[in-house]
Each structure stands twice: as C-alpha cells, then as structure tokens.
Amino acid sequence: MYNIYGAAGSGPVAIEAVLELMEVPYQVLVEAPTWEGEAERAKVTPVNPMAQLPVLVTTQGEVITESAAILLWLTEQHPEANLAPKPGCATRAQFLRWMSFIPAAIYSMYWVRDEPERIAGDNKAVYPELLQRTADRIAHCWNVMDSQLTPQLFLLGQQMSVLDIYVTVASRWTPGRRRFYQVAPGMAEVVRRVDGLVQLKDFWARRFPFNTDWDG
C-alpha cells in the first residue's frame, strides 16, 4: 500500500485520483494542510524538509516528493493503467513538456499566494496587488498552454493520461474555474469530462467536492 501525506482540495488530490483510477491500494497517512501554519508543516518536515505536499511513501519505504515526479513514477510502476504515452509515442514529448510546465509555471505561484509575506514581508499594503498579479500570471499560463494544444476527448488525444488529472485538479484553484474556462476554452471540455468520470464520482465528493466557488 502506498502512503500519502496530503490534504483535501490540494495538490496530493491529483495523486490520489490517479491511484483511484489505477485501482492501486493507498492511504492518506497524514492529513496536513501546510498552508495553515507551522503546526501543519511540522507534520510533513520529517519526510520532506521543504514542508510541502504531496509526499508519497512507496511500498519499499522510499520517499518521493514533487507532484509531477510522483505522477510520472506511478505511470512507470503501473503501465497496465495506460495513463501516459509510452516512450517513442508521438505524444510523449508534449506530455513531458506540459507535465513540467504545470509545476514550473503555475503550481509555483501558490507558494507566494498561500503566504504573501514570504515575498512582501510585513508590507501588507502590497498583498492585494501581489495576489492579483499572481492570479493574472496563472491565468496567462493556462492561456499559453491552451494555445499550444488541440484537445480531443482528452488533452493529448483520445487516451486519458495523468496530465488530464493534473490539469483538472490545478484548474480548480485560484483564479478559479470560471476564469479558466475563459482563458483556456480548448481545455475546458476536457476538465469537465474528467470532473464527470464515473470512476471518480465518490472520490471527488470526498476529497475535492464541487462547489460554486470554482465551477461555472
């Protein structure tokens, strides 16, 4: 069984959703919304000195961090699930490109947003502008990604991959789904399709419930 350090509504949900689709046993060993303060981060630092989620502990006790790395590793361990283009496949390069783009360009913005004082110190007067600028940057990055893709049933064609799960989860965060639909219309139907997967219906309700704050 895989063990996960996670938190509802956060990045580890993508890992959990993929494990649900793979029908692989796992448990959320530690629930730690690290953005809520030092007490929560302290639950994670023994396995990840960065005090960040997600963390996956393998059946052999190996610790893996970084969401994209975990997702890629899982596709290698469970190729029967067919959730990644195989090496040499025509869509492999773009798969790797966008799996790297999300944490580098989008996910990284939330380190600032969760605690603006990390960048602005005690100058609270600049917090609103910082939050607005990071939201705009995230929206811009989604728009760039959308402009480079021609989705079919899923982002890279007819076959679902972990990239679809990754985008579906991340697109629920700030600036929210309504804006995501506006700036990334090509990807909009794909994330709606993943939202509606029968295999994940109960999972979404449990770990990232639908609500009007992000859907539109």
Score class of each variant (00 low, 15 high):
A125S: 10
V63R: 05
F180Q: 06
N48S: 13
F101V: 11
E62R: 13
P46W: 04
P128W: 01
V112N: 06
V169C: 11
E40K: 15
T168F: 01
M1A: 13
Q52T: 13
P87H: 04
L155N: 05
W111M: 12
I119S: 08
D202C: 08
A8V: 12
V167F: 06
R193I: 07
L155K: 03
I15A: 02
N211H: 14
A125M: 00
Q52W: 09
T59Y: 00
F95S: 08
G196L: 03
A39N: 08
L19I: 05
Q27I: 00
V198D: 14
T34I: 15
D114F: 14
L71E: 11
R133V: 02
I64A: 06
R113N: 08
E80W: 08
G9R: 08
M1P: 13
C89W: 11
M187W: 05
R92V: 00
N48A: 00
F101L: 03
S67R: 14
M160C: 06
P128L: 04
E76Y: 10
W204T: 03
F180I: 07
D213Q: 15
L156I: 00
G37P: 11
V44T: 09
N211W: 01
I70W: 02
Q27V: 11
V190T: 13
S171R: 05
A170S: 11
A93K: 14
F101T: 02
M145S: 05
E31Q: 13
A205K: 09
K124I: 06
L19G: 12
A81Q: 05
D195I: 06
I165R: 00
